[in-house]
Design a protein around this nucleic acid. Structure first.
Lengths: 230, 230
DNA sequence: TAATAAAGTTAGACTAATCTAACAATATTT
DNA sequence: AAATATTGTTAGATTAGTCTAACTTTATTA
């Protein structure tokens, strides 16, 4: 049985080596800053997780997930996202409230409970933030998507998910009135200070990279083909 | 913020000094055996809980809950019983499965979550085992009830709750087909070996004190007046 | 390539919750 | 009231997860 803490390490590793594309392994410092602990702590834990065959790791080397570790990490994420969906759909919590609660609920280990909840929610494919929910076997469809920062001037796209799940970010998105499935048009991109002017729901708004880097979008073309110049 | 363990001590103290009638304080050994830890551990913890003003306790003395401790303990029980109700009513778990899961879920601290869940469940007064659910302020109606062992030969009564929530006990109750609200008649009480013959749903069955001590009942008279010779 | 910077490790300490083993206080019984 | 039994406490150890401070290894750059 994995501890609360071990599960958080595995979840973090999935975030950094599976969802963050281009990297299948991660350094001690990176993981430490992600988890907000000191590198020494990660060093120790990496050794322990290796003993339990959850990660691949050699002294002074990078850390990556083993097949078992990946599966366990995915289960934590499955539980997190199913609880988020429950809180949002059934208990009417808002977008920005559900993440924190799910951080606690995700550590309740019961396959049966999660499968019943899944069924109760009618087998959702995505959580309220637009992220895919891994299945019982830890499989997940990682859909192709771009950040709003990548979209060229003049092009239209559709918001499909958020990257940053923090309360502050979600409150901001909520405040400006943007929702998943909304259409966004990039009106102007200012190279000098990286500010972007966007239009959605007939409103025009100037936003910073802190916003555009954390909004996932798809355009009509990239919905069908992965290569697209939107 | 209370730890998982501290909450379990407070919950146990509520069970032993509020629900178990006649005692408002408890000894170190009793609490230790209830929690399945060593007396030394309870001694230590009693000192810590006293510092936090959660219990009244002096070296070599009995332990009792402070007003604050009682409230915190009641909150754990409120969460436990609301989750049990959810699991039973909404996720179709069986009587004997819900207790264990609720033991984990009860430690999620969020007043808002519990109030939303309460509302979602339509403000239930009792959990699936027949126990009252404390309100948001920690208040609870402790109904008058007898155990089946107290009922005299020939008398009829109604099952209202179980005392023992263990999986084994609940599985047995389920197996014999007895449910809350069922009418039970005490046919015969054998003094020699304390076996009781009961009748319910047209079935007749011989049961031991292990059963009768753990079934709570009310008769038609004690439903109205607390004094009754059922 | 030698110096410096960055990344990672180790040793030793701390806290919470537990244990065992030895001891101390209180209660009961003859 | 003395002996015995019960009950409770203390000291010292253990484990998990964390820290700081000192050290080592690897990478970068002048």
């Amino acid at each position: 049985m994995l501890s609360f803490t071990e599960e958080n390490y595995l979840k973090a590793l999935v975030q950094l080596t599976v969802f963050e594309d281009g990297k299948s392994e991660v350094g001690v410092n990176r993981l430490a800053s992600y988890l907000e602990v000191k590198p020494a702590t990660v060093s120790d834990m990496a050794r322990k997780l290796k003993v339990k065959a959850l990660v691949n790791y050699e002294k002074y080397g990078k850390i990556s997930l083993s097949e078992l570790g990946r599966k366990e990490g995915m289960m934590v994420i499955r539980r997190h996202r199913l609880w988020e969906t429950f809180l949002y759909q059934k208990l009417d919590f808002t977008w920005d409230e559900i993440h924190e609660l799910a951080e606690e609920l995700e550590h309740i280990h019961s396959k049966k409970l999660m499968n019943r909840l899944d069924q109760f929610l009618d087998f959702p494919d995505f959580d309220p933030h637009g992220d895919a929910i891994p299945n019982e076997d830890g499989d997940i469809i990682i859909p192709f998507r771009r950040t709003l920062s990548e979209v060229k001037e003049g092009k239209k796209c559709k918001m499909v998910a958020v990257k940053d799940n923090s309360t502050e970010f979600l409150k901001y998105v909520d405040k400006i009135g943007l929702k998943i499935e909304d259409e966004i048009q990039v009106i102007k991109k200012e190279d000098f200070d990286s500010l972007t002017t966007i239009q959605f729901n007939t409103k025009e708004l100037v936003v910073s990279p802190k916003f555009t880097d954390n909004i996932f979008v798809l355009c009509a073309i990239c919905l069908k083909a992965k290569e697209c110049d939107c």
